[in-house]
């Protein structure tokens, strides 16, 4: 028994959000305004993503929630619990078993499929905001494809740091039309934005939804002489030996000990389960014991 409608939001609100999602899918990369609702959690906790997930989930869905790639952080756990309680949907930590994945700041390492939907929590949806504070003006720039300013930002990066220093929320152009903020994912993830799954982006405080349909062209902005690079730490995971995954640097003791581990906890776990062992790792069975 629950006092809530399925997935907390009332049906009328969900319909309104679904219309925004469909419009977003029809115009890839375009920010669709929507009437964001109060959610029982503070802004910054992913209220935009939660509303998009609520409008997307059906009783048959299996939900995965990650924060910086991990299923077990406070933010991920509380959102997962929220939907367990309000929607009664099955949840999982396994990327391949999820039909809807809500994420903050990462794209899973494992390739997603056409049967999956990836929902991003977005803090600031407007990629032009930092140089042009006027919303009226940025909207006009989008509608007129007046994007010189976006490269000014990258130019400033190079002139100040000798390279494009932007490493998160790296701007992209979608289907050769709209410039879009991919949310604060590391630029390592940018090439994965061209994927088989549906990608939905929700910004609660800023009341915007945008989307990338499956197999849409997504190009990271750059200069000919400073081409985009999907960089990561030049190391292997110390637990699973993966060299192709995005790594977090973790401090292990007071003596300054450090190790690199996959930020995608499910990816790391499944590799260890398959027998991969990193430089500082132990065999998976012992680890679990």
């Amino acid at each position: 028994m629950t006092d809530y409608n399925f997935a907390y939001l009332d049906e009328q609100t969900k319909r309104m959000i679904r219309r925004a999602i469909l419009k977003g899918l029809a115009i890839p990369g375009y920010q669709v305004p929507f009437a964001s609702r109060e959610m029982p959690m503070p802004y910054g906790w992913g209220t935009g993503g939660v509303q998009v997930s609520a409008a997307t989930l059906t009783p048959d869905d299996t939900l995965k929630v990650i924060d910086q790639g991990a299923d077990d952080t406070t933010n991920a756990v509380s959102i997962r619990k929220f939907f367990e309680r309000t929607a009664g949907v099955a949840t999982t930590e396994e990327t391949s078993k999820a039909s809807v994945i809500q994420t903050r700041h990462r794209i899973p390492e494992e390739d997603l499929t056409e049967d999956q939907i990836l929902v991003y929590q977005v803090p600031i949806p407007e990629p032009l905001r930092f140089l042009e504070p006027s919303e009226v003006e940025t909207r006009k720039m989008h509608s007129l494809e007046d994007y010189g300013l976006m490269h000014v930002k990258l130019y400033e990066d190079i002139s100040r740091h000798g390279q494009i220093a932007t490493s998160y929320a790296y701007p992209v152009k979608v289907e050769d039309r709209y410039v879009m903020d991919p949310s604060p994912i590391p630029k390592f993830d940018n090439p994965k934005l061209e994927m088989a799954a549906i990608q939905l982006f929700g910004a609660g405080r800023e009341q915007r939804i945008y989307a990338i349909p499956p197999y849409t062209q997504v190009v990271s902005l750059d200069f000919e002489d400073y081409p985009f690079e999907a960089s990561k730490a030049d190391a292997a995971c110390d637990l699973c030996a993966a060299t192709d995954s995005y790594l977090d640097e973790v401090i292990t003791d007071d003596a300054g000990g450090r190790m690199f581990v996959c930020s995608d906890t499910d990816y790391c776990r499944s590799r260890r389960a398959a027998g991969h062992v990193g430089a500082l790792g132990t065999a998976f069975d012992e680890d679990a014991a």
């Binding site: 994007y147 010189g148 000014v152 002139s159 100040r160 750059d222 000919e224 002489d225």
Partner: peptide, 27 residues
């Protein structure tokens, strides 16, 4: 002018707006 953008960025903006994409040349 864009007061929070360098002199070079201010001069380069119009070039970039019409499609210049080579940092060295713009500079």
């Amino acid at each position: 002018l864009r007061m929070n953008v360098s002199a070079g960025g201010n001069v380069g903006e119009r070039l970039m707006a019409v499609g210049a994409r080579h940092y060295g040349n713009i500079r």
